[in-house]
Amino acid sequence: MSKSLKLIAGVTGMSDAESTGSLPARPEKPARKGSVEERMYHEIYDAIMEHRLPPRTKLTEHSLCEIYATARHTVRKVLSHLAADGMVDLEPNRGAFIASPSTDEAHDMFELRQMLERAVLEKLAGMPDVKTVIAPLRKMVASERQAFLTHDRPKWIRLSAEFHTALAELSGNALLVNMMRRLVSRTTLMIASVEAPGNNACSFDEHEEILDALEQGDAALAQSRMAHHLGACADRVQPDEPGNFDLRSVLGRST
């Protein structure tokens, strides 16, 4: 079995875990008026995606219980859900850590993303109402551009990642969406956070060009632009060094 096929098997194996919890399957940002469980999940998810919690940060159950004034079983449920989404690695006898994929794993994940996103674009380009279908993504890219222009880097990072999951959602394939969400989450963790977007990987300009090709119904052009885009993302992969980090400096601040 090839590395990519093994990775597919690993990704699909997580789908059952995602469907068992009470948390929403898709990591969106709701109003912070829900349960402690929901708020904890979304705050940790956002902090990871926005690079406010670095890779290999340990998520200690005791600290999270104190930060959110909740029971240990609630913390464990949230950590399991984050692990199912690829954001957290659960290590036996050691605890939960912010995911830090190896360079080899990142290579395999980007290879798999190339295949999956190519298939998504082919399906979308063949839709007779593709212009209407991708209209919400135009608004997302506009928000991504605005976040960059207003120097809201955390929001820009999150929107850049969500663009790819949103594309997959338009395909109507729930399994594909789950796979893409996990892959996008883990690969986003690997992209160097010190580089400015500009015309580099995950830029709003490249996203706009992909949508332009889709609107023209040109699957080959859209795929070519996506391949270049993801290749640039892969070139920016820089694993972070592990280190100690104070969870209280980032989490639970909306309490």
Rank of each mutant, 00 (worst) to 15 (best):
A220S: 13
P242F: 03
M226Q: 06
H228W: 08
C233H: 03
G231L: 08
A222S: 02
A227Q: 07
V237I: 11
F245Q: 00
L214I: 14
P242H: 00
D240V: 09
D240S: 14
N244H: 10
G217N: 10
A222F: 03
L221F: 05
D246M: 06
M226E: 02
I210L: 10
A222Q: 00
F245H: 04
L211R: 09
H228V: 14
S224K: 02
P239E: 07
A213R: 05
S224P: 02
E206Y: 05
D240A: 15
N244P: 13
H229A: 05
A234R: 11
E206R: 11
E209Q: 14
H228R: 13
A227G: 00
C233M: 14
R248H: 07
H228P: 01
P242C: 05
E241A: 15
S249I: 02
Q216R: 13
Q223H: 02
P242T: 01
R248L: 08
E241R: 14
I210A: 11
E208Q: 14
D212W: 11
I210K: 08
V237S: 03
L214F: 10
D235T: 05
D218M: 04
E215D: 14
E215P: 08
G217H: 09
A213N: 12
D218K: 00
P242I: 03
Q238T: 15
H207S: 15
A232C: 07
H229M: 11
A220R: 10
E208A: 15
E208W: 12
A220G: 07
G243Q: 08
D218V: 00
S249N: 01
E215Q: 15
D212P: 04
H207Q: 15
E215H: 11
P242A: 05
